[in-house]
Amino acid sequence: MSEVEALLRIRRTGFALDLPLTVASGEVVALLGPNGAGKTTALRALAGLSPLDEGHVRIGGRVLDDPPLFVAPEHRRIGVVFQDYLLFPHHTALENVAFGPRSRGVGKAEARERAAGLLAGLGVPADRRPRQLSGGQAQRVALARALAADPELLLLDEPLAALDAQTRLSVRSELRRQLAAFGGSAVVVTHDPLDALVLADRVVVVENGVAVQSGSPQEVARRPRTPYVARLAGLNLLRGVAEGHRVRVGAAVVVAAGEATGDVFVAFRPSAVAVYRARPDGSPRNVWPGTVTLAEPVGDAYRLLVEGEIPVTAEVSAAAVADLDLVEGRQVWVSVKAAEVESYPA
C-alpha cells in the first residue's frame, strides 16, 4: 500500500501552487504543464525538498508534511530522478547506485553487489564516472540509483528532457517498461504530451499552479479543457453555450455532432477543416469567412491559421495550398462537418 494523498500549497512571490494530488497504489500519474506552471515545485514538495506552507502529504496513511509537522527528505522513502540527473560526479556509476542502500544502513559489500546487479541488467559499465556516460546511460543510472533505495513513491522530473530526440524515443519506451517493473506509485513531471501518453495511467494538467484537467491521457487529448491542452493535442478548442446540437460561440453558431445544454467546450481536428476561396454550397452547416494569417508547412501538409468570427487552425494538403493560392492575407471560407465537431460540458 503506497497510496499518495496530498494537497500541495506553496506560496512564492508572484506564484502560488494549490494542487490536490492523489496517486493510487501502483499508478503512474503525469503532471503535464507549461514551464513555470509549478510542476517541479509540486515534486519538490512531495520529496520534502520544499516544505508546504499549507496542505498535507500522506503516503500509505503516514503523514509526511502537514504544517507544522514535517518529515525530512532523508526520512521519507521517496526516490527522485532529477531533470539533469544530479549523479554524484566524484562517484562511479556503481557508487552512485549503491549510495541509497548504504545510506539506509545496508552493508558496503551487499550494497555494491545490489548496485552491480542493477547496472548489469541495464547494460551500463559500473566503473564509469558520470561524465564518461552517454545521456541514455546517465538516465538509466539515475533511475537505478533512485530505485536501489527501495522507494514507496518514485518521482521523475522531466526524465527525458536532457536527451536528444533520437535517444528520447528509445529511452521513453524503456522507461515505461521500468516503471511497470517497479510496480510502485510514480509521479512524472513533463511538458511533453507524448511522455504523458506513453508513461502515465493518468494525466493531471497543471497551469499557473492549479490543476486544470485530469483524466486518462486519451481522454485529456480528446477533450481538452484549456487552450494549452488543445494546442498540445493539436485540436481546435472553442467554448460556448449549447442548446441541443447548436452551440453559440460569441456571435457565431457551431453545429456539433452530439447534443448538450449549457456551458460546453467544442473541439475538432485541424484536418477536419476544409478551406475554400468562395462560399461553398451544399451540406456543411459550419461555414465561416476568415483571413489566412499564417501558412506553415508541417510534414507534407500545411497548417493554416484562419482568423475570423471563429479562429480556426486548418490542416490542408500542399496541393490545395498551391491550387487555391492560400497565402497569408487571403480571404477564405472554412467549413467543418458537424459530425467532426465534439461538444462536452465545460
Partner: peptide, 27 residues
C-alpha cells in the same frame, strides 16, 4: 558547489552528516 547534489543525497536517505561526509566535502 551545486547544493542540489545534497538534496539528491537526502532523497536517497542520507543523514545530514552522511551528506556532508560523502557529498559536500568530496565536492
Amino acid at each position: 558547489a551545486d547544493r542540489r547534489y545534497e538534496e539528491a543525497a537526502a532523497t536517497l536517505g542520507a543523514s545530514r552528516w552522511t551528506v556532508f561526509r560523502r557529498v559536500t566535502l568530496p565536492l
